Computed example of a mutant assay.
Amino acid sequence: MRQSLRDKIIQVCDAKIAAKGEGVSVSFYAFFANRNDDPVLLMDAATWWIETHGLDHFVKAVTIRQMVRDGK
């Protein structure tokens, strides 16, 4: 996964956690605008989320943030 996407995921997770608490869940769509303005980056996130890790549609933001920080 690209570093720019890793940085974005951590930033979005931090903001969601700050706003809604540690129980908040996210999907990989949370890291993108409502329109598909970067399909390659979206597929990069989807591949990491679905194929690489087999994650459910919604996962706790604290879990995703830690996975990204750990380099998974």
Results as ranks from 00 to 15, higher is better:
Ser4Asp: 11
Asp7Val: 05
Leu42Gly: 12
Ser27Gln: 11
Asp44Phe: 03
Gly54Cys: 13
Phe31Val: 12
Met67Val: 02
Met67Asn: 02
Leu5Ser: 02
Asp37Ala: 12
Arg69Ile: 14
Ile9Asn: 01
Ser25Gln: 15
Ser4Gln: 07
Asp70Asn: 14
Asp7Ile: 00
Ile50Asn: 15
Ile10Lys: 14
Gln3Phe: 09
Asp38Ser: 15
Asp14Gly: 00
Gly21Val: 00
Ile10Cys: 10
Leu41Lys: 13
Ile9Trp: 01
Lys20Leu: 03
Lys20His: 15
Val68Asp: 03
Ala45Val: 07
Thr63Ser: 07
Glu22Arg: 13
Lys20Met: 04
Glu22Val: 11
Ala18Val: 01
Val68Leu: 07
Arg35Asp: 09
Asp14Gln: 05
Asp14Phe: 04
Ile64Leu: 06
His57Leu: 08
Met43Gly: 09
Val12Gln: 07
Phe31Pro: 09
Ser27Trp: 04
Met43Thr: 07
Leu55Phe: 09
Gly54Ile: 11
Met67Ala: 07
Asp14Pro: 02
Ser25Thr: 15
Ala45Gly: 08
Lys16Glu: 12
Ile64Trp: 01
Asp14Ser: 09
Ser27Met: 12
Phe31Gly: 06
Ser25Leu: 07
Val40Ala: 14
Met43Tyr: 05
Gly54Gln: 10
Phe32Val: 00
Cys13Val: 09
Phe32Trp: 05
Phe28Val: 01
Arg6Met: 08
Trp49Gln: 04
Lys16Pro: 02
